[in-house]
């Protein structure tokens, strides 16, 4: 806020001139970028399809209703696979994420110049790539099936879990660790008594949180052949079996809601 004098009167301005200029410049550049982006999108869009969209949507909608309820009996097994991909994938990820997190946290890393950068690299590279891409890759390498999906979920979750966990490790109260160290405890005893109790709530919270996300992600892994209910979705889409598609989508929606409810309950119980 600036008060300047103009014609002998004091004028109140909300911001000073330089700040105003910068904000206008940012706004202008931002708008230009957006307009350019919009043109790019519209250039690669067949607008005839766009105007036709409501009719197509209505058409698909009418074909998809009512869902083919009896198809549910074929879905139990893929649903079970989906659950397993999410759960086992999360467990596998945690087993790898815990050591990585300890190696990445400044206060527990065995070597700040060699091991820590490696751990951080693992975290960044596994986190930046979506599980669907990992699945795509693993299907090419080890073949289609639940195993590829499970490993894809596990790899994607390592970085996510390890990042949150190492931040929790860096925030622990060092005095408690010091007190255990002063009793003559060994390195691993310090870990078990001084550090682990402090990060347990974070670890539990992260696991449940990630499990919830993993269940959502594992519902679509089948699209690239990595097992679970997505496989049925892909099949039904390819054969344009819309009543089946709508049922699958309903089942996925229900699974997501249930997993969200479970994870909220578990988190409530832990914290």
């Amino acid at each position: 806020m600036v008060v300047s004098t103009k014609n002998g009167l004091k004028v109140w301005q909300r911001r000073d001139r330089k700040y105003q200029l910068i904000s206008w410049a940012v706004l202008l550049i931002g708008t230009a970028i957006f307009v350019w982006c919009w043109q790019e999108i519209s250039r690669s869009t067949t607008w005839a399809f766009f105007w036709d969209a409501p009719r197509i949507a209505a058409d698909i909608g009418s074909r998809a209703m009512p869902p083919r309820w009896e198809y549910i009996f074929t879905l139990w097994e893929p649903l079970w696979d989906t659950l397993n991909i999410a759960t086992l994938g999360t467990i596998l990820a945690l087993m790898m994420a815990v050591p990585v997190a300890f190696a990445a946290a400044r206060n527990t890393t065995p070597s700040a110049y060699f091991i820590r950068p490696v751990a951080l690299l693992i975290i960044v590279s596994t986190r930046s790539i979506n599980s669907l891409i990992w699945a795509l890759l693993l299907v090419k390498i080890i073949g289609p099936g639940v195993m590829a999906g499970l490993i894809a979920i596990a790899i994607r979750s390592i970085g996510f879990c390890a990042k949150l966990l190492y931040e929790a490790i860096e925030e622990i109260d060092e005095k408690q660790v010091e007190a255990i160290e002063a009793t003559g405890a060994g390195r691993w005893q310090i870990m078990v008594y001084g550090i682990l109790p402090q990060i347990m709530p974070a670890l539990a919270g992260i696991s449940v949180f990630r499990w919830d996300i993993n269940l959502r992600e594992s519902t679509v892994l089948g699209l690239v052949g990595a097992g679970g209910i997505g496989l049925q979705l892909q099949g039904s889409l390819n054969t344009l079996a819309w009543p089946q598609v709508s049922l699958i989508l309903l089942v996925i929606l229900a699974a997501v809601l249930v997993s969200e409810w479970v994870s909220a309950k578990v988190r409530g119980a832990i914290i």
């Binding site: 790019e40 999108i41 519209s42 690669s44 869009t45 067949t46 399809f49 766009f50 969209a53 197509i56 949507a57 698909i60 519902t219 679509v220 699209l223 979705l233 889409l237 989508l249 996925i252």
Partner: peptide, 15 residues
């Protein structure tokens, strides 16, 4: 899932 449905409706592409 949303993307799949929208691709079915609007056709392939960034839209």
């Amino acid at each position: 899932v949303v993307a799949i449905l929208l691709v079915a409706i609007f056709g392939f592409g960034p839209l």
